[in-house]
Amino acid sequence: MQGEVNTESVIQVQKEKQKPFWKRVDHRVMVFLSLVVGILIWALLSTIPSVNAILTNPVTIAKTFVTELSNQNLVTDIVASIYRVLGGFFLGLLVAIPFAFLMGWYDIFRSLFEPWIQFFRTIPPIALIPLVIVALGVGESAKIAVIFVATFLVMVVSIYQGVRNVDPTLIKAARVLGATDKDIFLEVVVPASFPYILVGVRLGLASAWTTLVAAELTGASKGLGNMIMEAGLYFRMDLVILGIILIGLIGFVMDKGVLWLEKKLAGWQEVSK
Protein backbone atom coordinates (compact mmCIF):
# COMPACT_ATOMS: atom_id res chain seq x y z
CA MET A 1 0.00 0.00 0.00
CA GLN A 2 2.65 2.48 1.10
CA GLY A 3 4.68 1.75 -2.04
CA GLU A 4 1.71 2.31 -4.29
CA VAL A 5 0.93 5.70 -2.84
CA ASN A 6 4.51 6.78 -3.29
CA THR A 7 4.81 5.76 -6.94
CA GLU A 8 1.55 7.49 -7.62
CA SER A 9 2.77 10.78 -6.23
CA VAL A 10 5.98 10.41 -8.22
CA ILE A 11 3.97 9.93 -11.37
CA GLN A 12 1.95 13.03 -10.48
CA VAL A 13 5.07 15.12 -10.09
CA GLN A 14 6.45 13.92 -13.41
CA LYS A 15 3.23 14.78 -15.17
CA GLU A 16 3.24 18.20 -13.56
CA LYS A 17 6.66 18.91 -15.05
CA GLN A 18 5.72 17.83 -18.56
CA LYS A 19 2.62 19.99 -18.71
CA PRO A 20 2.90 23.25 -20.66
CA PHE A 21 2.75 26.30 -18.46
CA TRP A 22 -0.83 27.33 -19.31
CA LYS A 23 -2.07 23.99 -18.01
CA ARG A 24 -0.21 24.42 -14.77
CA VAL A 25 -1.78 27.79 -13.99
CA ASP A 26 -4.51 27.65 -11.38
CA HIS A 27 -8.07 27.89 -12.65
CA ARG A 28 -8.81 30.88 -10.46
CA VAL A 29 -5.86 32.81 -11.83
CA MET A 30 -7.20 32.20 -15.34
CA VAL A 31 -10.65 33.44 -14.36
CA PHE A 32 -9.11 36.55 -12.87
CA LEU A 33 -7.03 37.13 -15.99
CA SER A 34 -10.06 36.69 -18.19
CA LEU A 35 -11.96 39.29 -16.18
CA VAL A 36 -9.12 41.78 -16.33
CA VAL A 37 -8.69 41.33 -20.08
CA GLY A 38 -12.44 41.62 -20.62
CA ILE A 39 -12.63 44.87 -18.71
CA LEU A 40 -9.58 46.19 -20.54
CA ILE A 41 -11.19 45.47 -23.91
CA TRP A 42 -14.34 47.16 -22.69
CA ALA A 43 -12.32 50.21 -21.59
CA LEU A 44 -10.54 50.32 -24.95
CA LEU A 45 -13.77 49.99 -26.93
CA SER A 46 -15.36 52.81 -24.96
CA THR A 47 -12.64 55.21 -26.07
CA ILE A 48 -14.20 55.09 -29.56
CA PRO A 49 -16.65 58.05 -29.47
CA SER A 50 -19.51 56.36 -31.31
CA VAL A 51 -19.31 53.34 -29.01
CA ASN A 52 -18.92 55.49 -25.93
CA ALA A 53 -22.37 56.99 -26.44
CA ILE A 54 -23.82 53.58 -25.54
CA LEU A 55 -21.07 51.68 -23.82
CA THR A 56 -19.78 53.97 -21.08
CA ASN A 57 -16.30 53.21 -19.82
CA PRO A 58 -15.80 51.06 -16.73
CA VAL A 59 -14.47 53.87 -14.58
CA THR A 60 -17.61 55.97 -15.11
CA ILE A 61 -19.74 52.94 -14.27
CA ALA A 62 -17.77 52.44 -11.06
CA LYS A 63 -18.26 56.11 -10.17
CA THR A 64 -21.97 55.90 -10.92
CA PHE A 65 -22.13 52.85 -8.70
CA VAL A 66 -20.60 54.76 -5.79
CA THR A 67 -22.82 57.85 -6.16
CA GLU A 68 -25.96 55.76 -6.60
CA LEU A 69 -25.07 53.75 -3.53
CA SER A 70 -24.67 56.90 -1.49
CA ASN A 71 -28.02 58.40 -2.47
CA GLN A 72 -29.84 55.25 -1.40
CA ASN A 73 -31.82 54.88 -4.66
CA LEU A 74 -29.83 51.91 -5.83
CA VAL A 75 -30.14 50.10 -2.53
CA THR A 76 -33.90 50.61 -2.58
CA ASP A 77 -34.08 49.23 -6.11
CA ILE A 78 -31.99 46.18 -5.32
CA VAL A 79 -33.92 45.44 -2.15
CA ALA A 80 -37.24 45.81 -3.98
CA SER A 81 -36.16 43.42 -6.73
CA ILE A 82 -34.77 40.78 -4.39
CA TYR A 83 -37.83 41.01 -2.20
CA ARG A 84 -40.11 40.31 -5.18
CA VAL A 85 -37.97 37.47 -6.46
CA LEU A 86 -37.68 35.73 -3.14
CA GLY A 87 -41.34 36.34 -2.30
CA GLY A 88 -42.58 34.83 -5.56
CA PHE A 89 -39.98 32.11 -5.47
CA PHE A 90 -40.69 30.89 -1.95
CA LEU A 91 -44.42 30.96 -2.56
CA GLY A 92 -43.81 28.91 -5.69
CA LEU A 93 -41.61 26.44 -3.85
CA LEU A 94 -44.08 26.14 -1.00
CA VAL A 95 -46.86 25.16 -3.38
CA ALA A 96 -44.72 23.19 -5.84
CA ILE A 97 -43.36 20.71 -3.29
CA PRO A 98 -46.69 19.32 -2.05
CA PHE A 99 -48.11 19.45 -5.58
CA ALA A 100 -45.20 17.53 -7.04
CA PHE A 101 -45.29 14.91 -4.29
CA LEU A 102 -49.03 14.43 -4.58
CA MET A 103 -48.71 14.02 -8.33
CA GLY A 104 -45.83 11.62 -8.00
CA TRP A 105 -47.43 9.57 -5.26
CA TYR A 106 -51.11 9.40 -6.23
CA ASP A 107 -52.18 8.54 -9.75
CA ILE A 108 -55.41 10.53 -9.41
CA PHE A 109 -53.54 13.75 -8.77
CA ARG A 110 -51.28 13.06 -11.70
CA SER A 111 -54.20 12.57 -14.06
CA LEU A 112 -55.94 15.68 -12.75
CA PHE A 113 -53.05 18.13 -12.77
CA GLU A 114 -50.49 16.99 -15.27
CA PRO A 115 -52.31 18.20 -18.43
CA TRP A 116 -52.77 21.68 -16.92
CA ILE A 117 -49.20 21.97 -15.82
CA GLN A 118 -47.92 20.76 -19.17
CA PHE A 119 -50.11 23.30 -20.91
CA PHE A 120 -49.23 26.32 -18.81
CA ARG A 121 -45.58 25.39 -18.88
CA THR A 122 -45.42 26.19 -22.57
CA ILE A 123 -46.61 29.76 -22.01
CA PRO A 124 -43.87 32.29 -21.23
CA PRO A 125 -44.92 33.80 -17.90
CA ILE A 126 -44.31 37.28 -19.31
CA ALA A 127 -47.35 36.75 -21.51
CA LEU A 128 -49.43 36.68 -18.35
CA ILE A 129 -48.33 40.15 -17.25
CA PRO A 130 -51.11 42.16 -18.91
CA LEU A 131 -53.66 39.81 -17.40
CA VAL A 132 -52.13 40.05 -13.96
CA ILE A 133 -51.93 43.83 -14.16
CA VAL A 134 -55.63 44.04 -14.93
CA ALA A 135 -56.42 41.67 -12.10
CA LEU A 136 -54.00 42.89 -9.44
CA GLY A 137 -52.83 46.31 -10.61
CA VAL A 138 -49.17 47.28 -10.88
CA GLY A 139 -48.30 46.88 -7.21
CA GLU A 140 -46.13 44.37 -5.43
CA SER A 141 -48.71 41.60 -5.50
CA ALA A 142 -48.86 41.66 -9.31
CA LYS A 143 -45.09 41.16 -9.61
CA ILE A 144 -45.01 38.47 -6.99
CA ALA A 145 -47.94 36.72 -8.64
CA VAL A 146 -46.19 36.56 -12.02
CA ILE A 147 -42.99 35.26 -10.44
CA PHE A 148 -44.97 32.78 -8.40
CA VAL A 149 -46.57 31.31 -11.51
CA ALA A 150 -43.27 31.17 -13.37
CA THR A 151 -41.32 29.50 -10.58
CA PHE A 152 -44.12 27.17 -9.57
CA LEU A 153 -44.38 25.71 -13.05
CA VAL A 154 -40.66 25.19 -13.43
CA MET A 155 -40.22 23.67 -10.00
CA VAL A 156 -43.28 21.45 -9.94
CA VAL A 157 -42.16 19.69 -13.12
CA SER A 158 -38.63 19.14 -11.92
CA ILE A 159 -39.58 17.91 -8.45
CA TYR A 160 -42.31 15.70 -9.85
CA GLN A 161 -39.73 14.07 -12.10
CA GLY A 162 -37.65 13.36 -9.01
CA VAL A 163 -40.53 11.70 -7.19
CA ARG A 164 -41.29 9.54 -10.21
CA ASN A 165 -37.67 8.52 -10.60
CA VAL A 166 -37.24 7.06 -7.14
CA ASP A 167 -35.63 3.66 -7.61
CA PRO A 168 -38.32 1.03 -6.94
CA THR A 169 -35.78 -1.36 -5.44
CA LEU A 170 -35.05 1.22 -2.75
CA ILE A 171 -38.73 1.26 -1.89
CA LYS A 172 -38.73 -2.54 -1.78
CA ALA A 173 -35.61 -2.54 0.36
CA ALA A 174 -37.35 -0.26 2.84
CA ARG A 175 -40.53 -2.34 2.78
CA VAL A 176 -38.76 -5.56 3.68
CA LEU A 177 -37.09 -3.78 6.57
CA GLY A 178 -40.54 -3.00 7.90
CA ALA A 179 -41.24 0.47 6.53
CA THR A 180 -44.82 1.74 6.46
CA ASP A 181 -46.12 4.02 3.70
CA LYS A 182 -45.30 7.00 5.87
CA ASP A 183 -41.75 5.76 6.48
CA ILE A 184 -41.28 5.18 2.79
CA PHE A 185 -42.45 8.67 2.00
CA LEU A 186 -40.30 10.40 4.60
CA GLU A 187 -37.24 8.14 4.55
CA VAL A 188 -37.04 7.18 0.89
CA VAL A 189 -39.12 9.33 -1.44
CA VAL A 190 -38.27 12.69 0.11
CA PRO A 191 -34.49 12.19 0.34
CA ALA A 192 -34.35 10.50 -3.05
CA SER A 193 -36.08 13.46 -4.68
CA PHE A 194 -34.03 15.99 -2.78
CA PRO A 195 -31.46 16.49 -5.57
CA TYR A 196 -34.34 17.14 -7.95
CA ILE A 197 -35.76 19.68 -5.52
CA LEU A 198 -32.43 21.49 -5.64
CA VAL A 199 -32.39 21.36 -9.42
CA GLY A 200 -35.91 22.78 -9.31
CA VAL A 201 -34.79 25.52 -6.93
CA ARG A 202 -31.97 26.45 -9.27
CA LEU A 203 -34.18 26.56 -12.34
CA GLY A 204 -36.88 28.32 -10.34
CA LEU A 205 -34.56 31.05 -9.12
CA ALA A 206 -33.21 31.66 -12.60
CA SER A 207 -36.69 31.85 -14.00
CA ALA A 208 -37.82 34.11 -11.14
CA TRP A 209 -35.01 36.52 -11.81
CA THR A 210 -35.57 36.80 -15.57
CA THR A 211 -39.33 37.12 -15.12
CA LEU A 212 -38.85 39.83 -12.51
CA VAL A 213 -36.83 42.07 -14.76
CA ALA A 214 -39.40 41.67 -17.51
CA ALA A 215 -42.21 42.45 -15.09
CA GLU A 216 -40.44 45.54 -13.75
CA LEU A 217 -39.67 46.82 -17.23
CA THR A 218 -43.38 47.06 -17.90
CA GLY A 219 -43.90 49.49 -15.08
CA ALA A 220 -42.99 49.73 -11.46
CA SER A 221 -42.07 52.46 -9.05
CA LYS A 222 -38.82 50.81 -8.00
CA GLY A 223 -36.66 47.80 -8.73
CA LEU A 224 -33.67 47.16 -10.95
CA GLY A 225 -35.76 46.60 -14.09
CA ASN A 226 -37.54 49.86 -13.47
CA MET A 227 -34.25 51.65 -12.84
CA ILE A 228 -32.93 50.47 -16.22
CA MET A 229 -36.06 51.55 -18.02
CA GLU A 230 -36.13 55.02 -16.48
CA ALA A 231 -32.41 55.51 -17.04
CA GLY A 232 -32.97 54.59 -20.69
CA LEU A 233 -35.61 57.28 -21.01
CA TYR A 234 -33.17 59.91 -19.69
CA PHE A 235 -30.38 58.42 -21.78
CA ARG A 236 -28.31 57.64 -18.72
CA MET A 237 -26.39 54.76 -20.33
CA ASP A 238 -24.04 54.44 -17.36
CA LEU A 239 -27.02 53.63 -15.14
CA VAL A 240 -28.44 51.20 -17.68
CA ILE A 241 -25.18 49.30 -17.86
CA LEU A 242 -24.75 49.38 -14.11
CA GLY A 243 -28.23 47.90 -13.78
CA ILE A 244 -27.48 45.17 -16.29
CA ILE A 245 -24.26 44.25 -14.51
CA LEU A 246 -25.98 44.16 -11.13
CA ILE A 247 -28.76 41.93 -12.46
CA GLY A 248 -26.17 39.54 -13.85
CA LEU A 249 -24.14 39.58 -10.65
CA ILE A 250 -27.07 38.97 -8.34
CA GLY A 251 -28.36 36.13 -10.54
CA PHE A 252 -24.88 34.63 -10.59
CA VAL A 253 -24.50 34.81 -6.82
CA MET A 254 -27.89 33.21 -6.27
CA ASP A 255 -27.02 30.36 -8.63
CA LYS A 256 -23.68 29.79 -6.92
CA GLY A 257 -25.47 29.80 -3.59
CA VAL A 258 -27.76 26.98 -4.66
CA LEU A 259 -24.83 25.04 -6.10
CA TRP A 260 -23.02 25.40 -2.81
CA LEU A 261 -26.12 24.20 -0.99
CA GLU A 262 -26.31 21.20 -3.29
CA LYS A 263 -22.72 20.26 -2.51
CA LYS A 264 -23.41 20.58 1.20
CA LEU A 265 -26.74 18.79 1.31
CA ALA A 266 -26.65 16.28 -1.54
CA GLY A 267 -23.00 15.30 -1.56
CA TRP A 268 -24.04 11.68 -1.24
CA GLN A 269 -25.03 11.49 -4.90
CA GLU A 270 -23.09 9.17 -7.16
CA VAL A 271 -21.38 11.34 -9.74
CA SER A 272 -22.42 9.84 -13.03
CA LYS A 273 -21.60 10.76 -16.62
Binding site: L170, A173, R175, V176, L177, G178, A192, A266
Partner: peptide, 29 residues
Protein backbone atom coordinates in the same frame (compact mmCIF):
# COMPACT_ATOMS: atom_id res chain seq x y z
CA UNK B 1 -49.70 -11.12 3.24
CA UNK B 2 -46.93 -8.62 2.67
CA UNK B 3 -43.37 -7.79 3.58
CA UNK B 4 -42.74 -8.62 7.21
CA UNK B 5 -40.11 -8.09 9.81
CA UNK B 6 -39.41 -11.77 10.00
CA UNK B 7 -38.06 -11.96 6.46
CA UNK B 8 -35.11 -9.91 5.26
CA UNK B 9 -34.02 -9.57 1.66
CA UNK B 10 -30.63 -8.99 0.07
CA UNK B 11 -31.07 -7.69 -3.47
CA UNK B 12 -28.71 -8.22 -6.34
CA UNK B 13 -28.42 -4.48 -6.96
CA UNK B 14 -27.40 -3.79 -3.34
CA UNK B 15 -30.25 -1.27 -2.96
CA UNK B 16 -28.41 0.80 -0.37
CA UNK B 17 -29.83 4.22 0.44
CA UNK B 18 -27.25 6.53 -1.12
CA UNK B 19 -28.16 9.46 1.16
CA UNK B 20 -27.47 7.46 4.30
CA UNK B 21 -24.05 6.58 5.63
CA UNK B 22 -23.09 2.93 5.89
CA UNK B 23 -23.98 2.96 9.57
CA UNK B 24 -27.35 4.63 8.97
CA UNK B 25 -28.11 2.08 6.27
CA UNK B 26 -27.40 -0.81 8.60
CA UNK B 27 -29.37 0.85 11.42
CA UNK B 28 -32.40 1.53 9.29
CA UNK B 29 -34.33 -1.67 10.01
Amino acid sequence: EGPGEGRGVVFQQYALFPWKTVLKNVEFG
